[in-house]
């Protein structure tokens, strides 16, 4: 799935990384605990989270993730957007709650692992 499809499915507003929306991603995860993301996530390229601070972007950087979706309409601050922009990570916000947002993407074929059903 292209990152632009995620944006459309979640009716999300993009904060940075507009130029990367054409990239393909094949898996995603959702968590508010960066500890858990660092410990359990393997190759998921997309992170859905309700956690707004800058360490969300640093965590994504360490894990080579490509896109962060903030749920419940949360909007990151300017520092967070700047860091993500420099690192080539797409940031977007959706009004959907965590469960809805994950459900919509899963339904559309974006699983935890690339091939799982």
């Amino acid at each position: 799935m292209k990152i632009s499809e995620i944006q459309q499915l979640l009716d999300a507003k993009v904060h940075c990384g507009q130029e990367h929306l054409d990239q393909e991603v094949s898996s995603a995860c959702g968590s508010d605990m960066m500890s858990d993301v660092l410990a359990f996530v393997k190759d998921q390229a997309v992170l859905l989270t309700g956690l707004l601070n800058l360490q969300t972007v640093r965590t994504a950087m360490m894990m080579d993730m490509k896109c962060i979706v903030f749920v419940r309409g949360k909007v990151p601050d300017a520092n967070t957007i700047e860091l993500a922009g420099q690192s080539g990570i797409v940031l977007m916000s959706t009004e959907n709650r965590m469960y809805q947002a994950c459900g919509k993407l899963y339904n559309a074929g974006l699983y935890t692992e690339g091939s799982e059903q």
């Binding site: 605990m33 960066m34 500890s35 858990d36 410990a39 956690l51 601070n53 360490q55 969300t56 965590t59």
Partner: peptide, 14 residues
Amino acid sequence: VRSLGFGAGMGLPN
């Protein structure tokens, strides 16, 4: 610390 997204006790094992 937990409200910042850390403190699950996973760091050292990781």
